[in-house]
Design a protein around this nucleic acid. Structure first.
Lengths: 125, 125
DNA sequence: AGTTCATTTCCATATTCTTGGAAATATGAA
DNA sequence: TTCATATTTCCAAGAATATGGAAATGAACT
């Protein structure tokens, strides 16, 4: 079965697996709505009505997959989506799963969907 | 946990789950390379070096997710990717996971990636 | 009828994922 | 230091997935 350990495919499988779960997909979508400043786990538990342990588990999964970034700010941790990474995933799917090898299918097929967050803020202690 | 059983999200989760597996992703990519005529399970077992039972299991999963279509032709069954469905998945991700709600992020964000196999190809600029 | 090939289902096993309470850790404030 | 809040890790039980041999099904041909 294991024949071509393609690194890009491996990354895609991990990212797809991270999104292939109802709670995590909802969580990621929520984060996308707050892509600029991010959200704290506390805010997410309120929004999604999840036990803290469950939320933390899924959040960690998204981070492990490289789809979510975190930054500590005092007592809080802000999580935000890594849109560049998400974009890369969509690009991979478009490239490898949307068209036959070597073929182009029009202007809409460009892999670049949207770019990383425009501006960043930092405020560490 | 289960709070908003969004049908579109549900479909996306199933499709993502179908692709979030090394063997199945390789399988789907193989099918995309033969999107026009399709492939028989026999040909796939040879290409991917999988036991028939294992291949059948994964194939069924892809069909269940709506990503693969089959047609019987005499003694053979030909499987081919449902590119429209794949396109819808990419569209969903682009719409819901690539940008903040209501925001546009440039010309590249158009949800339509590629449509079912084109008869004519365009020259990329 | 019976034979052969293509493909799937049956089944048991092994592995991985999901859940969430309880305990632990980290940070800031009094 | 002590307290309170934010967040994570620990753990264990249940649920879902993955694997593949062996048996069953389907479809053509003799």
């Amino acid at each position: 079965m294991t024949q071509a350990p393609d690194a890009a495919a491996l990354r895609a499988v991990v990212a797809l697996g991270a999104l292939a779960q109802e709670t995590r997909l909802a969580l990621f979508r929520l984060l996308v709505e707050h892509a600029v400043d991010g959200l704290t786990p506390g805010a997410m538990t309120l929004k999604l009505k999840l036990p803290a342990a469950t939320l933390s588990f899924h959040l960690k999964e998204l981070v492990r997959a490289g789809l979510v970034l975190d930054r500590r700010e005092g007592r809080f941790i802000y999580y935000r989506p890594d849109l560049a990474s998400m974009n890369a995933l969509v690009g991979y799917l478009t490239e490898n799963c949307c068209r036959a090898s070597g073929e182009s299918c029009g202007t809409g097929c460009a892999p670049s969907a949207c770019l990383p967050v425009p501006s960043r803020r930092k405020r560490p202690s």
